[in-house]
Design a protein around this nucleic acid. Structure first.
Length: 555
DNA sequence: AGCTTGAGCGCC
DNA sequence: AAAAGGCGCTCAAGCT
């Protein structure tokens, strides 16, 4: 059963029940004061809540301690359906753009008036949109039941992801400001009282100035630094650390150390801490579906790029513990399953698929296995990685064939789709124009070259899209299943809960005595996700699971 | 003064 | 040694 919510999250709300058969009950009007209790009461029947945008509706509920089990996020689902190859000719895809096509609202601006205005017109009415989406899926189901099943699974997983994102933000990641501050002081020196560089960083800057004999140098200025390096006789084209690392000169060591410190200061320094840590919690804003492939993004805080340096500050509360799990070599296992490549699945039977490649005699070393696999997933064209590719192709023709086919499709300007049916965007008009010019009878060699390079670029993108996007689907199913299992553990006020999701990694903050049960739930949910997507195909989704008191102890 | 762009580097 | 997919964030530089 579905309940469609329309109106404004903080105002009066209209609820319409829609049965699984599509029968509508008369709409019920609820006054603002009664909305929370009404939703909480109806949640006992475990409906799927249908609303315009989880980020608009769910925070209000969570603030009042109301969690919901299932939802359908119309905006996220619309974006998937609109682009999907499998619903290509549907009434939804053929419509001109509506407000449902808008990207997620900009940072800080959580009130989106587009869906709050009352009354809604047909274009913005949540019930209309929901019925439209149902029609599209029903039509697909009649033509291709399997595709409809997978797409519905994707929409449910995406919507559940949106719930989880808000729940994680509501609980927050446990963060010790004391540990973080101690790390900063150790690396940078004490926090400057009146701005300026911290002492240890300033000392390094002085070392750099004297090593380069440039007393006025500001090491933060790329052009200044580049000029000074060249003047000191170093043949560099930029100031990046991977170029500097190769040089032998007294300035290199302090310069690299300076860069590392300066990076820590600007990205995760005291200012970051003041902006993002409150009451011992880090609450980043996750953007579900923020990446074209279906991966999540974040807005502010950089939660998905926490450097190893500061991970020690993620610490469980007293009496609690962190259960951290990550899927090993997820994307290779995904392409093995998608292509039904039994040989590659067999190589991934243990924890380490790369070692499995060595044991199967495909390559000589683990490092080669990793390099070759990354080349296959990202489309390496040169270097050692590309040279290893033929070995992979011989050993795993199905899996490699799958990513190669995705690359060729992209080069032709076609869409590709993930296992559950999320489709890649079409290339831009500019790209098509470049292809047209390159194929024209009076194309110059430069035109042809430009077309070839652009085609290859887009092919590398579509190649990676199918693997990265399907991996994201597996991860969302994993996490949704885990969330369900965690609900059955502990008491309401001491329940293990997700606090971090990082593409192929999850972290659960758990009462210490429940850690083993949480670890088991994580493993069971991973196995479930594999079966949900790929049925009985024998591919292992291996996990490494660690029970730790702080994040730096994982791995 | 305020905006965009590019370099650089952190994560998967 | 760098490369090759997806991102976010910050700073300085360069622009209006």
């Amino acid at each position: 059963m579905f309940i469609v919510l329309s109106g404004s999250p903080r105002g009066a709300v209209t609820l319409t029940e829609v049965s699984d058969d599509g029968i509508l009950s008369p709409p019920v009007h609820v006054e603002p004061a009664d909305v929370l209790s009404d939703i909480a009461r109806r949640e006992r029947d475990r409906p799927r809540w249908v609303w315009s945008d989880t980020t608009l509706w769910y925070p209000m509920l969570l603030e009042s301690g109301v969690a919901v089990e299932r939802s359908h996020d119309l905006r996220l689902c619309h974006r998937i359906l609109r682009l999907a190859q499998s619903t290509r000719n549907s009434e939804l895809a053929e419509r001109s753009a509506t407000p449902w096509d808008l990207p997620p609202h900009p940072p800080g601006q959580r009130q989106n008036t587009l869906f709050d205005d009352e009354p809604h017109d047909d274009e913005t009415d949540p019930l209309e949109e929901f019925l439209l989406q149902r029609r599209v899926l029903d039509t697909l189901a009649a033509a291709d039941p399997g595709a409809a099943f997978r797409l519905r699974l994707l929409l449910a997983a995406e919507s559940c992801g949106a719930l989880i994102a808000e729940e994680m933000r509501s609980r927050g990641m446990p963060w010790s400001a004391e540990v973080h501050a101690a790390t900063l002081t150790e690396v940078l020196g004490p926090r400057p009282q009146f701005g300026g560089r911290p002492a240890k960083l300033e000392a390094l800057a002085d070392e750099i100035r004297s090593a380069l004999q440039a007393p006025a140098l500001n090491p933060d200025s790329q052009p200044d630094l580049l000029r000074a390096l060249k003047k000191a006789g170093l043949g560099v084209s930029g100031t990046s650390k991977w170029e500097l690392r190769e040089l032998r000169h007294p300035v290199i060591a302090p310069l690299l150390e300076y860069k590392k410190g300066a990076r820590l200061l600007s990205a995760n320094g005291w200012a970051w801490m003041e902006a993002w840590i409150t009451d011992g919690r880090f609450r980043p804003e996750y953007v579900v579906g923020g990446v074209v492939t279906g991966r999540w993004a974040t807005r502010g805080g950089g939660a998905l790029q926490l450097p190893a340096q500061v991970r020690g500050a993620v610490r469980a509360d007293d009496g609690w513990t962190l259960v951290v799990a990550d899927a090993s070599q997820l994307e290779p296992r995904i392409i093995a399953a998608m292509s039904r490549d039994e040989a590659m699945a067999k190589a991934g039977r243990g924890l380490d698929l790369y070692q499995g490649l060595v044991d199967a005699g495909v390559v000589n070393t683990r490092a080669h296995a990793k390099l070759a696999m990354l080349g296959a997933l990202y489309g390496a064209t040169t270097g050692e990685s590309a040279q290893l590719m033929p070995k992979l192709t011989r050993a795993f023709p199905l899996a490699i064939g799958l990513v190669e086919a995705a690359a060729r499709a992209g080069e032709r300007g076609e869409q590709v789709s993930t296992w559950l049916g999320r489709s890649s965007p079409l290339p831009s008009d500019g790209w098509r124009e470049v292809q047209r010019a390159g194929a024209s009878p009076d194309a110059t060699p430069a035109d042809e070259r430009r077309a070839r390079l652009a085609a290859r670029d887009w092919g590398r993108f579509t190649r990676n899209f199918v693997a990265q996007g399907t991996a994201a689907e597996w991860a969302m199913c994993w996490m949704a299943g885990l969330r369900q299992r965690l609900c059955a553990l502990g008491d309401a006020d001491s329940r293990p809960h997700l606090v971090l999701f990082l593409h192929d990694e999850v972290m659960v903050h758990s009462p210490a005595p429940l850690a083993d049960q949480v670890a088991e739930a994580i493993r069971d949910a991973a196995a479930d996700a594999g079966r949900l997507l790929f049925g009985t195909f024998p591919v292992d989704f291996a996990l490494s699971v660690a029970v730790v008191s702080s994040y730096d102890q994982a791995k």
